[in-house]
């Protein structure tokens, strides 16, 4: 019935076009499409397509990032309608993310955040040079499922351990999962400090978060 609109929604994600996404979402609501259907029948298939094409080397990081931006713009329009209808889009989980204290490397962490939110996680990016405690305080405040800690320096990697300890002190473990990443970080380092997982890149981070939350 609304197949054309669903296809257009899918396409605006593939095109990474936030303006088009906003317009199409407004049109969909006006046409009486349920917000949840617009997401599940239109936007998400678009996102899946981009993810697959990226994995095959046919699409590139800017495509991925812009698809994420279009998705964000679209859900901002659909969100109020969903709340009114009492429907809730099931996010895959809440993630608190940041680069650890003393470290200002930002690009990889932001990419991880983009991919997580594009894949359906609710991401709270705390930025860079984030104090250990802040990870724990925010995780509690937001009732997070996962805390992601990035470190690019061997000198700041040790801070990931402090974050694990801070979450323990706040009584958030083992409920809140901790994932770590960054160039010098390894799987065995993750194990050593008692984190729940290590992600080599942004796609691995998504897979890891899904596995940890049983999604």
């Amino acid at each position: 019935m609304h197949d054309d609109l669903y296809l257009a929604l899918r396409q605006c994600i593939i095109d990474g076009d936030p303006e088009q996404a906003i317009e199409l979402c407004q049109r969909a609501l006006a046409a009486g499409i349920a917000a949840l259907d617009a997401i599940n029948e239109g936007l998400v298939p678009g996102l899946n397509h981009v993810g697959e094409q990226f994995a095959q080397g046919e699409m590139f990081l800017p495509d991925l990032v812009m698809a994420g931006e279009a998705m964000k713009a679209a859900t901002a329009i659909l969100e109020p309608a969903m709340q009114k209808a009492g429907a809730r889009r099931e996010t895959l989980g809440k993630v608190v993310l940041g680069t650890v204290q003393g470290d200002i490397h930002e690009i990889g962490k932001t990419l991880v955040g983009t991919m997580l939110s594009a894949s359906g996680f609710e991401v709270h990016d705390l930025g860079v040079d984030v104090p250990f405690e802040t990870f724990a305080v925010k995780a509690r405040e937001l009732n997070a499922d996962v805390v992601g800690v990035s470190a690019l320096l061997t000198t700041t990697m040790t801070g990931q351990k402090n974050v694990v300890e801070a979450l323990e002190r706040h009584g958030l473990r083992p409920r809140v999962k901790i994932v770590v990443g960054g160039a010098p970080v390894t799987r065995s380092w993750g194990e050593e400090i008692g984190a729940d997982g290590y992600g080599e890149d942004a796609l691995a981070a998504v897979a890891l978060a899904k596995t940890l939350l049983g999604k």
Binding site: G57, F60, L61, P62, I107, G108, L111, D201, A202
Partner: peptide, 12 residues
Amino acid sequence: GGAPAIFDMRSG
């Protein structure tokens, strides 16, 4: 000085 580089759009 500098270490300017391009960012690889496939691997990041």
